[in-house]
């Protein structure tokens, strides 16, 4: 854990891990989508509409995983003051928000033919929309902190605290379909169900679906790594510019004397 907190070592690993994650993820995700959409079975009740789950379920999973990553990284940032943890949390926000938005859009497209409505204010849909707004708030807060960094570290800590508080929504999303009557169905997949083959979802759907989840997760990981490298490079360039400016100023004032 402490070994990865060193930015130089992180960059050495990320240099080859980023393209590996992205390429492997693209291959797995597109393979699973082609498999599920063109060769997989249609559902007995929903018909071909079921095929959108190969996009909807991975994006929902990553929308929630994105905030879980922000929460864990924020915790490490506050307790151990690892600078890389704060960078990781900021890097995960945008892809998390994009996947959450995709989840809401694909869910809405599925809801129209399956339920007979684009949108309802039930527990699952509402808590997922709240997650999207939390992402927007987090990104705004983290950006504001970056701009005020010269004033001190306080703003960066604000984003980390917000990331931890927002994590309360994640179990609410998960249990919303169990605690409350909702239009959204309860989960079809569970670890025990998948391992014992007793899922309410037939295996013909489960296998391409889990492949798509793995593929999109790798893409997510690759994007986060790439964004972390970008943030580190930005900070490096800024530090170099500042050093140059200070050296130039020192030379001018030395001449003046």
């Amino acid at each position: 854990m402490h070994g990865f907190a060193n930015p130089a070592r992180f960059l050495r690993i990320a240099t080859w891990a980023t393209p590996l994650c992205l390429i492997l993820g693209l291959v797995l995700a597109s393979g699973a989508l082609v498999w599920g959409v063109f060769f997989g079975p249609a559902d007995q009740l929903q018909g071909d509409v079921v095929r959108i789950i190969y996009l909807h379920v991975p994006t929902a999973w990553l929308g929630m995983m994105g905030w879980s990553a922000i929460a864990v990284a924020s915790f490490v940032e506050i307790v151990w003051r690892h600078p890389l943890a704060g960078i990781a949390a900021r890097a995960a926000a945008l892809p998390g928000a994009v996947f959450t938005a995709l989840c809401l859009i694909t869910g809405s497209i599925w809801g129209r033919p399956a339920w007979g409505t684009w949108w309802v204010w039930d527990g699952r849909l509402t808590s997922m929309l709240v997650l999207l707004f939390l992402y927007f708030g987090y990104m705004a807060l983290a950006n504001a902190g970056e701009q005020n960094d010269a004033a001190g570290q306080g703003q960066g800590r604000m984003a980390a605290i917000f990331g931890l508080i927002g994590a309360v929504n994640i179990p609410i999303i998960h249990y919303s379909v169990l605690w409350w009557n909702s239009l959204h169905q309860p989960p079809s997949l569970s670890l025990s169900g998948v391992l014992t083959g007793t899922s309410p979802m037939a295996t013909a759907f489960v296998v391409p679906l889990l492949t798509a989840v793995l593929g999109f997760s790798l893409i997510f990981g690759g994007v986060v790594l790439a964004r972390m490298r970008m943030i580190l490079a930005d900070a490096q360039a800024e530090a170099r510019l500042r050093r140059k400016a200070m050296a130039a100023q020192a030379a001018v004032s030395a001449e003046g004397w």
Binding site: A42, Q44, W115, L183, Q185, M201, A202, T203
Partner: peptide, 29 residues
């Protein structure tokens, strides 16, 4: 509003109940 449940069954197994479908899936494995 139609409510879908957590069960997903391929169309080829239409006419079977969900339990029968799961049995058919288990047999083909």
């Amino acid at each position: 509003l139609a409510k879908h449940d957590e069960k997903y069954t391929p169309r080829e197994m239409q006419g079977m109940t969900t339990d029968q479908a799961h049995k058919a899936i288990a047999e083909t494995k």
